[in-house]
Structure formats: C-alpha cells, structure tokens
Simulated scan of single mutants.
Amino acid sequence: MTSVSLTVNGKAVTADVEPRTLLVQFLREGQRLTGTHVGCDTSQCGACVVHLDGEAVKACTTLAVQCDGRTVTTIEGLAAPGGTLHPMQAAFREHHGLQCGYCTPGMIMTAVDLVRRKGHHLDEATIRHELEGNICRCTGYHNIVKAIAAGAEAMAAEPVREAAE
C-alpha cells in the first residue's frame, strides 16, 4: 500500500492505496464521488474526465499515486457551496445537453477545461473538435454543442472557480 494525500473538491484527503489503483476507482470507491463515470476503461469515451490541478484528465488512465500532493476536482466539486450550479452545469440543463446523462459529467468537465484553454467565445467547429475524446451515444451532440457555447458565455460573467471551497 502507498499513502497518498491530495485535495479533492477543496477537501484534504489522505488514504492508503494499491499502487495500481486508478484515480476513478479512488474517487468512486474510496471517496464515494460517483459522478465520475467509468465508461470504457481505455481512455476512449471521456465519461471519467476530472480536473487535475485545473486541467482535464481521464481518471480511468490516471493512477491515484500520480495525484499525490495535487488537487482534483470532480463534477461534484464544480457547483458552488450551497448547491448553485456552475454556469456550464446550468447551461447543460437549460439547453438539454444530455439525454441518458452518463457522459454528461465528463462532457461538462471537458467543456470547463476547454473554456479555460480556448476562451469564452467558442464556435461550433472548435467545440466539436475539442469533444473528439468524449463519446455520447444518445444525443448526436447538437444540444451538447449549444450547451457548451452558452456555458462558455455564461462563464465569462462569473468569477473563476475550480472547486467548492
């Protein structure tokens, strides 16, 4: 067993893990943060996307030991204290950027990172290109793209926030 200490959604966490423990297992099984989904276990679908030190990573191919001393934000940590949705979460709800919802947490985490990297004014081609690592089997992406564009604009009016503090 290896001891890891990290910050998850603004909370300090220390745990003993097997060196082979994936971050997605650590979050879902160890921390009971089940919003991070396991879709493919091969880094193809994006359902497991979380932020590691503010950048999107796929938790199904990231080891928990790699996160020692770092900060992880999951979909549960994106909302403000008190439950106010992050602007991207609100945009997905408002623009119906989901159907079954399984890919939605990963899509939202990817979208927030996309805005951080590319800015608040995103065109459809950029959004679609940036979503290539995320698979949705239900929606056809039209409403997801609309939601991301709206969420990006809404984020421009919000103060920068990563995890619930």
Rank of each mutant, 00 (worst) to 15 (best):
Ala111Val: 10
Ala59Trp: 01
His96Val: 10
Cys45Phe: 07
Leu78Pro: 02
Ile127Glu: 06
Arg32Pro: 03
His51Ala: 06
Cys138Asn: 09
Arg70Met: 08
Ser43Gln: 10
Ile135Leu: 15
Tyr102Cys: 10
His121Ala: 14
Gly35Glu: 02
Tyr102Asn: 11
Asp123His: 05
Arg20Ile: 08
Leu23Asn: 03
Pro81Asp: 11
Met107Ser: 04
Ala64Pro: 07
Gly133Val: 00
Thr62Arg: 13
Arg93Phe: 13
Leu27Pro: 02
Leu78Tyr: 04
Val57Pro: 11
Gly97Asn: 00
Arg137Phe: 07
His95Ala: 14
Gly140Ser: 03
Leu27Phe: 09
Arg32Val: 07
Asn134Val: 13
Arg32Met: 13
His142Asn: 05
Pro19Met: 01
Ile127Cys: 02
Asp41His: 05
Glu55Ala: 15
Glu55Cys: 12
Pro81Met: 10
Gly77Trp: 05
Leu98Met: 15
Asn143Asp: 03
His95Gln: 15
Gln44Arg: 07
Gln66Ala: 12
Met88Ala: 05
Gly83Gln: 09
Lys146Cys: 03
Ala64Cys: 06
His129Trp: 08
Thr42Asn: 12
Thr21Arg: 03
Glu55Gly: 11
Gly119Tyr: 09
Ala56Asp: 09
Thr126Ser: 13
Val13Gln: 02
Thr84Asp: 14
Gly77Glu: 06
Ile75Glu: 12
Asp16Pro: 00
Val24Lys: 05
His142Val: 11
Glu132Trp: 00
Gly46Phe: 05
Asp113Cys: 14
Met88Gln: 05
Gln25Cys: 00
Asp68Met: 06
Cys136Thr: 07
Glu130Met: 02
Ala15Gly: 00
Ala79Phe: 10
Val115Trp: 00
Gly46Tyr: 02
Cys40His: 10
Val8Cys: 02
Asp113Glu: 12
Gly10Val: 06
Pro105His: 14
Cys100Leu: 12
Ile144Pro: 00
Ala64Thr: 14
Leu22Pro: 00
Thr36Lys: 04
Gly46His: 02
Val145Phe: 00
Thr73Arg: 08
Leu52Asp: 08
Val57Asn: 11
Ala59Asp: 01
Gly133Leu: 02
Cys103Pro: 08
Gly106Gln: 11
Leu33Gln: 03
Tyr102Trp: 15
Asp113Arg: 13
Tyr102Pro: 07
Leu23Val: 03
Asp41Trp: 08
His95Pro: 07
Glu94Ser: 14
Cys136Tyr: 06
His129Tyr: 03
Thr21Asp: 01
Thr71Gln: 14
Ala59Arg: 00
Thr62Asn: 07
Gly83Ser: 08
Gln44Leu: 15
Glu76Leu: 05
Gly83Arg: 04
Ile108Cys: 09
Thr139Pro: 01
Asp16Phe: 05
Ile108Gln: 11
Arg128Gly: 03
Cys45Ala: 03
His142Ser: 05
Glu55Val: 14
Ala90Asn: 10
Gly133Thr: 01
Thr74Met: 11
Ala47Phe: 07
Lys58Val: 02
His37Glu: 09
Cys67His: 01
